[in-house]
Nucleic acid binder design. Sequence first.
DNA 1: CCTACCGATCGGTAGG
DNA 2: CCTACCGATCGGTAGG
Lengths: 196, 196
Amino acid sequence: MSRTDAQAKGEETDGAGTRRGQILAIAAQLFARKGYRGTSMRDIGEAAGVLGGSLYHHIKSKDALFVELHHAALDGAEAHIAKAVAQECDPWARLEAACAALLEVQLDPDSLTMPMMNDFREVPESVRAALVERRDRFERMFRDLVAALPLPAEIDPSLYRNLLLSQLNSVADWYRPGRLTPRDIAAQIARVFRHD
Amino acid sequence: MSRTDAQAKGEETDGAGTRRGQILAIAAQLFARKGYRGTSMRDIGEAAGVLGGSLYHHIKSKDALFVELHHAALDGAEAHIAKAVAQECDPWARLEAACAALLEVQLDPDSLTMPMMNDFREVPESVRAALVERRDRFERMFRDLVAALPLPAEIDPSLYRNLLLSQLNSVADWYRPGRLTPRDIAAQIARVFRHD
DNA sequence: CCTACCGATCGGTAGG
DNA sequence: CCTACCGATCGGTAGG
């Protein structure tokens, strides 16, 4: 029975319980740490306790694996952010909640973390289109959040949103778990980006 | 005569005039566009009109080539920024001048652009240490600029500097030459980061 | 899930 | 600067 069959019947698909789920989680961590090109199928296999070739029983290709992880990560992030945003009314509070939720997902070393939403340069061109499309949809959430802000006239909202998103994405490049929590950083970013 | 000999005698070393200078410029563009791993020596050779192996007459290794480009790019950026900053007195104006100067260098598709100061994850570990050390020295410039700012008490200067630098570095990931100039973007970043 | 292998590509070198 | 090549590694596959 193929995965799609299982999904159609509503069975559990790839929880951390299934072997496939374990492999996905391991691959996500490696991609997040070492990038797409820096992670070989043999690396993933080794971390999972099998040879690289054996992974192809669970996945179709390295490309497909990466795309699946990317989409799953954005799905998870979207849901997490939507829930956090819904609890706030003030536009600035909603934005800060979204930032905190995004950073919580993105800086969590466990779970399906974001396999670097940014290193599209590292990925084969055939894959890039799918990633860009999914990311654009993700970023629409922030367009709405920014549109609701009472920004001063001299700030261009579209560029402002661009700056905020790239700011959030770049945190993973320098963040090291320690004195600052994801929430701390989100609070500081919200302060810097707050203008009224 | 080796390169070091030429430098010691004060002769021209690697201007765009010399063959070596051409190759460095070509390599810098490729590294900036496709990343360290995404650029093969054969790619560089092809762009320079020779076979990959022939490059080793001019350089010692791919690693050494990348480190040299990285250092040269930061040297150039430092000089450009220092000159721009020196023309301003007000701390905020000095910061904006630094941002504009950095982006001018970083977004210039010609010349020895920054071969992605950020994708250290893509570079072999043996090279990383040298890059990090040089970058840390570079960033000290911004530490001083930020220290001179009359920031509100609720903003942590060290985190603020971190955010500003990663903001500036990430522009190259999404910038496309068009309606906005590097100066436009610097002006907007300066506005967002201005708090008094 | 392993053995054993494929064709492609990589950084780099010897020798001219 | 080229020819011709090295050993290593890559994504992926057949067959069990």
